[in-house]
Design a protein around this nucleic acid. Structure first.
Length: 310
DNA sequence: AACCCCCCCAACCGCGAAGCG
DNA sequence: TCGCTTCGCGGTTGGGGGGGT
């Protein structure tokens, strides 16, 4: 606990805070009550005044933060719903780290909470992928992996959602044209929700296997994830076809050749491969446990399964 | 049971913007 | 216009707790 101000702390006292020691650290129930009562009587704002008037040995700043992030009645507690997560991902791609602006579109959620979500969940995955979370490649992963996964969760949930996506939300929609090919599959995607495999993986028909991972001059084709839909639609008979024929023994290797590009190859080996061009992930076809609709409690679980495949 | 490690999130900090006399 | 105060934002920190060994 760091309730008392440590003597080494620098900006402990500023201007009008000389009388008595300022408290820091976690708020007590008594402090919460004092603050809540004061705001109930006098309203928000003039936070330094609130701090003095209520008798709290806190800075106005601290009072404001406590109220806005915790005590305010409409602050929503608990985990972010998939809908909220999608909204955050989408709005962040649009506005970057404008947390308060993003928070305005999530009623009851604070900028602090959204910022924490981004740092602890999203940036963590970027770190694992050895990517900059702002890189185009990682943005593509969010759009073509993460968001479809969340959409599946929403679509797969029978409960009605209280938060609907705004009209402008651009849903990931690669490869919808292949949905009809799934009729014989165990995969049963929700309407308009491409399955993860559909979204991401394309299979190389001539399996030239292991040397791909060691020779940068092999037939690896490199493209951005966002190009996948176009590539497939433009070259339906190319060496690549969508992975819809259910060869569940095939291993897939996703090779990130650099920060901006990646290539997709197939391989029969398992494990993690380093190739001279960069970092490779070997992903088993059934890395999602077979049925894409079932069993994914949350995105952490999703990523957990992803990394367990490494 | 004890210890360690890591993650989460509440709270803090610095700084620039806005407001005001 | 200036200087002071207040507000609000984004980045960072570190305590608590859960999970693993």
């Amino acid at each position: 606990m760091r309730l008392a101000m440590s003597s080494s702390s620098k900006s402990a006292s500023s201007s009008s805070e000389d009388e008595g020691e300022l408290r820091r650290g976690p708020w007590t129930l008594e402090e919460d009550t004092l603050l809540t009562q004061d705001i109930a009587c006098h309203g928000e704002g003039r936070w330094n005044l609130v701090a003095k008037r209520s008798g709290l040995k806190r800075t106005g700043k601290s009072c404001r933060l406590r109220w806005l992030n915790y005590l305010k009645p409409d602050v929503k507690r608990g985990n972010l719903t998939p809908q909220e997560q999608i909204l955050i991902l989408e709005l962040h791609s649009k506005w970057g780290n404008r947390w308060s602006k993003i928070a305005q579109h999530l009623p009851g959620r604070t900028d602090n909470e959204i910022k924490n979500y981004w740092r602890t969940r999203v940036q963590k995955q970027a770190r694992h992928l050895k990517m900059d979370s702002n890189s185009a490649t990682f943005q593509d992963i969010i759009r073509y992996v993460w968001m479809p996964r969340l959409l599946q969760k929403i679509g797969g949930s029978s409960s009605s959602s209280s938060l609907s996506l705004p009209q402008r939300t651009v849903l990931p929609q690669p490869l919808n044209m292949h949905t009809q090919n799934l009729s014989s599959q165990h995969i049963s995607p929700q309407p308009h929700v491409p399955s993860l495999n559909q979204s991401l993986f394309i299979q190389q028909e001539n399996n030239s296997s292991s040397e791909k991972s060691t020779s940068p001059s092999s037939s690896i084709q490199t493209f951005r994830m966002s190009q996948v839909p176009q590539i497939i639609s433009e070259y339906p008979t190319s060496p690549y076809s969508t992975m819809v024929n259910g060869d569940y023994n095939t291993m897939y290797t996703t090779c990130y050749n650099d920060m901006e590009n990646f290539s997709l190859t197939s391989d029969t080996a398992s494990g993690c491969i380093k190739n001279p061009m960069g970092y490779c992930h070997v992903v088993e076809n059934n890395w999602f446990g077979g049925d894409l609709v079932d069993g994914m409690g949350n995105m952490d679980e999703f990523w957990q399964q992803f990394w367990n495949m490494q």
